[in-house]
Design a protein around this nucleic acid. Structure first.
Lengths: 254, 254
DNA sequence: TCATTGACTTGATTTGAATCAAGGTTGCCT
DNA sequence: AGGCAACCTTGATTCAAATCAAGTCAATGA
C-alpha cells in the first residue's frame, strides 16, 4: 500500500465537495478532513484491509474498482459489493469504538483512493447535526440496499439477478438498443450476484440465444432494452409473477 | 388496529429508558416522546403496516412477536425479521423525508406495541448529538447484521442456518443439555431462514436421528450443546470448513 | 515465437432443496 | 362430540444451480 500522489489529475476541492457526506461541511471542517486525508494507490489484486481488522479509516474511490468480500477457508470468495469511482465505503462503522471491518477490501484493478480518518470525522459529526443526518441518510439507504439484496437472493433466481444487474447499467430512459462495457471481470460480477462463473456464462449464453443481446468479450450489446425488461419479469417464473422491487424498495406504480 | 391501553402492567418510564435509543434523553425530551407515543394492540395475524406505505412512526414491541416480511404476488411470503419484546423496529428510516417502509409488518400473535412519531424524534435528534450517535450505532449494527445475513444465505446451507438459529437461543456459556421453546411457529422460522417448511421439518428430523436433539411440538431439547456446535461446523461441508461468522462479524479467536 | 497463465466457455453429472401430493395432529368453534 | 382448519410431517419427484472435467481464447512474458 503506497501513499503518494497518484493521478496526474490534481485533487480539487470540488471533488471532495461532490461527495455526499462532505457536502455540508464548512471551510474549516473541510480543511480538517483534508489534513487527515491520505492518497492511496493500489495495484491490481492488492488488498486494502482484511475482515476483522481494526477499522480506523473510511475511503473514497477516485479511480479503479474495489471489491468488498469475505473468504472461506478454502480460499473461495463471495463478493458483497463492488465500489466504483466517486463512491465512498466503510463509512458506516466509523463511530463504532473498536470496530472492525466486516469484510475485506481488495482492488480489482489499479486503483486510486483517498483515505479519511474516522477519528477526525467523528469529531466533525459531533459538532455538525447536518452531517450526522447525511450519514444517517446514507446508512438508511444501505440498510434498504441489503434488504433488497436478501430479497434478490431468496425470491429471485440467477437469471433475474443477472438481468437486473445489466439493466442497472442502462439509463432508465433508454428503450431501444444499448451497448456498454462490463466494468469488471465476469467472475467478479458472478460472485457479486452469488452465481458460479459457469452458470453466469450459461445464462448470458441463453440470453444471447433468445436474441436479447450479443456478448463480445466484456462488451454487452442489448438489442432491445424494453424487451429485456419484460424478459426479466418473466424470468421470475416458475412461480408466476413476483413483486418487482425497485432500487429504493418501493413498489412499481401500477 | 386499536389504540388504547392494553396490558395490566403499567407503562413505567423505566421501560422506555431501557430502550437503547432513548437511554440518553433528558426528562423534557422523554416527556415529548411520551406525548407523541401511542399504545397499539394487534390481534394474531393483524397487519401493522404494508411495504411501500408512508413511514411516519417507529415501534417498540412490549408483548408478542412481529414479523417483517415481503409478499410475492401469489401470496407467498419471505420473513426478513422477527421482532421480539423490548426490541424496536422501523427506526432506521425515521429521518428520511417521504420514506416508505421497505417491508410489511404483521403480528404473529396477539401483541402490544408502542408507536413513536418520527417527526418528534427527529426534532430531538437535531438537538441531541448523543442520541444521533446512538441511532447511528444502532444502524451500523443493522448493516452488519444484513451483511451476515447475505453471508449465511450464500455461503451456508440450510442445515447450518437452522443450527445457528437454535444456537442463537442458547446462552453461550451452556455446554450440556438445554431445553427451550420455539417462540414462533415453525413455518415462520423456516421463512426467516429462507427454508421451505418441508425442508425445515426434514432437517430437524435428521438432527434428531443424529441424536443431537429431541423435538416435542415447539419444545427443542438439545442433548449436548457443545456437540451441536461442532456439528454446525461440519454441516458446512461439502466444502470442508467455512469461516465461522460470529454475530458481530468478527472472526472467532483462534 | 512459443509457453504459460488466467479468464471464460461448454458439456456431463450430481445434488440440495423445492415442489407436488398425501397424510397426521392439534386445537378451536359450533 | 364432531368437523374444520392450521400446522406440521413424510414420501416421491423435479429442478436450478453447483460441481467436475475438459476445453478455448487472449494476453503476457521470457
Amino acid at each position: 500500500m503506497q501513499s503518494q500522489p497518484y493521478s496526474q489529475r490534481p485533487l480539487v476541492d470540488q471533488e471532495l465537495k461532490r461527495v455526499y457526506l462532505f457536502a455540508g461541511l464548512n471551510i474549516q471542517q473541510l480543511e480538517r478532513v483534508k489534513q487527515s486525508m491520505r492518497h492511496l494507490l493500489l495495484a491490481e489484486g492488492e488488498s486494502l484491509f482484511e475482515q476483522g481488522q481494526r477499522a480506523e479509516r473510511f475511503f473514497l474511490v477516485r479511480e479503479g474498482h474495489i471489491k468488498l468480500l469475505r473468504l472461506s477457508l478454502e480460499g473461495s470468495e463471495k463478493v458483497f459489493e463492488v465500489i466504483a469511482p466517486t463512491q465512498t465505503f466503510a463509512e458506516a462503522i466509523m463511530f463504532m469504538p473498536n470496530s472492525v471491518y466486516p469484510v475485506s477490501a481488495q482492488a480489482i484493478e489499479p486503483s486510486s483512493l483517498l483515505a479519511f480518518e474516522n477519528k477526525i470525522f467523528v469529531e466533525i459529526l459531533k459538532e455538525s447535526s447536518d452531517t450526522c443526518f447525511r450519514l444517517m441518510f446514507h446508512m438508511s439507504r444501505r440498510i434498504r440496499h441489503w434488504i433488497n439484496e436478501v430479497d434478490n437472493l431468496t425470491l429471485q433466481n440467477a437469471t433475474y439477478r443477472l438481468i437486473n444487474y445489466i439493466l442497472y447499467h442502462i439509463p432508465s430512459n433508454h428503450q431501444d438498443s444499448y451497448e456498454f462495457n462490463l466494468p469488471i471481470p465476469k467472475q467478479v460480477i458472478a460472485s457479486r450476484l452469488s452465481i458460479k462463473p459457469e452458470t453466469f456464462s450459461r445464462i448470458l449464453n441463453s440470453l444471447c440465444q433468445e436474441g436479447l443481446l450479443t456478448v463480445t468479450g466484456r462488451i454487452i450489446h442489448i438489442h432491445q432494452v424494453e424487451k429485456l425488461r419484460l424478459y426479466g419479469q418473466s424470468a421470475l417464473l416458475p412461480n408466476e409473477h413476483y413483486e418487482i422491487v425497485c432500487q429504493d424498495g418501493l413498489l412499481p406504480k401500477k
